[in-house]
Design a protein around this nucleic acid. Sequence first.
DNA 1: TAGGCCATCTGGTCCT
DNA 2: AGGACCAGATGGCCTA
Length: 122
Amino acid sequence: MNRNRRTTHSTESGRDVQMSFDQRLQANARERYRTHSVNSAFNNLRQLIPTEPRNRKLSKIETLRLAKSYISHLIAVLVTGNGQRPCVDTIGHQRSEGLSEQPDEPPARPPICTFCVTFDKS
DNA sequence: TAGGCCATCTGGTCCT
DNA sequence: AGGACCAGATGGCCTA
């Protein structure tokens, strides 16, 4: 690669600023490091979410959605004191909020929580 | 082979 | 000015 290459980097005032190739490489390295730290946070979060089967690797989007669902499940456990299937007893968390969280997707799912089902099997 | 997921690069914007 | 954060583009890997 040509280390003398320059890339433009415009500011909010619209003025183009020359960015040296070395600066670009440094920015790339920082971004890589930042992405790795985000991934390590995702890995930490994954370890806290029970899956079926056990040790199934969750994607990032699955991790976020299931984390939200798991928090709701734990809240239901606290509210009802029912450690088995608490979510069927609560109003606010009556359906699975697991993998399909599309905004425009109709809620066509039986009123059972993902984690109630998971813990039933175990 | 198509689709999903991911890492990396890149440029724009915001913040200190 | 420099760094952090973010989103889009791109290409590679894996699985059904």
